[in-house]
């Protein structure tokens, strides 16, 4: 066990050392490492930023955008997914329009978002929402359709109503599939919130990262990238953890 940890941490350390050596010696091996900041420079820049107020305001902005867009997508994605899978009428009514919009990458909606919404802020939340909405919708729809009919039959022969079937069988039974969609949705939501911030944001981690690039603050760019990575990892883990908690009934290997 200890040996594996040595290996894991060791590989990280080797990566960092390699980065430091290549950038500090201004190596030019086709890739131009001379252009990139060193590990030490990035660490220093990180230290400065973490000590200042701007960093946290950007963090707060991005987190607020992603949570609003993602929560909206979760609620509407699950609702529409269930409705489309369970009702033929509503499925026929809604699915064509949704299928037309679905293949369009959310980030391609930026011009529309700018035209449509009074503020950039709302536009960014909209883009984030659209990005997360479709994976959640599709996973929910599949999960509802794949639900074993025996559970519904059991509830109905207990005298359960349509509504009770929905609340006590369909929603809990589809949670594993829904959480698959939520995980994917969170990933694409980050891609889109950062891109949208780079294009039209004021404040936010994406905006700050692009800003750093335009003012030739390359260590700042790397700090932004690392911050985005950390935020993405943190929010995905939160979704993952919540998913595990609510689907504890699934058969799972003891070691997982």
């Amino acid at each position: 066990m200890a040996g594996r940890w040595v290996l894991r941490i060791g590989s990280l350390v080797v990566g960092l050392v390699l980065w430091q050596v290549l950038t500090a010696t201004d190596a030019e091996v086709w890739l131009r490492f001379s252009q990139l900041p060193t590990v030490v420079e990035v660490a220093q820049r990180f230290g400065e930023q973490v000590g200042g107020a701007d960093y946290y305001r950007d963090l707060g902005n991005s987190l607020l955008r992603i949570t609003s867009g993602f929560l909206l997508a979760a609620v509407l994605g699950v609702t529409f997914g269930v409705v489309i899978a369970r009702s033929r009428l509503l499925g026929d009514l809604l699915q064509p329009s949704l299928e037309v919009v679905r293949p369009i990458p959310a980030i391609a909606l930026v011009p529309i978002a700018i035209l449509l919404f009074p503020t950039d802020e709302q536009g960014i939340v909209f883009i984030t929402f659209v990005a997360a909405f479709f994976p959640i919708l599709v996973s929910t729809r599949h999960a509802v359709r794949a639900l074993p009919t025996i559970w519904e039959d059991a509830l109905r022969t207990m005298g359960g109503s349509r509504w009770q079937v929905l609340l006590r069988v369909v929603l809990p039974g589809t949670l594993p599939g829904v959480f698959g969609g939520l995980s994917v949705g969170m990933g694409v939501a980050w891609i889109c919130v950062i891109s949208a911030e780079m294009i039209s944001g004021q404040f936010g981690v994406g905006y700050r990262t692009w800003q750093a690039y335009t003012v030739v603050d390359y260590p700042g760019v790397i700090v932004g990238m690392i911050t985005i990575g950390l935020l993405g990892w943190l929010t995905s883990s939160a979704v993952e953890l919540l998913g595990r908690r609510v689907t504890r009934w699934l058969p799972r290997e003891a070691s997982a």
Binding site: I150, A154, T247
Partner: peptide, 19 residues
């Protein structure tokens, strides 16, 4: 339609696995 007066016992897997 169904009724709570007529209960069905299944061969297997009739329980809700999350309860």
């Amino acid at each position: 339609g169904t009724s709570r007066e007529r209960a069905l016992v299944f061969q297997e897997d009739g329980l809700l696995p999350w309860r």
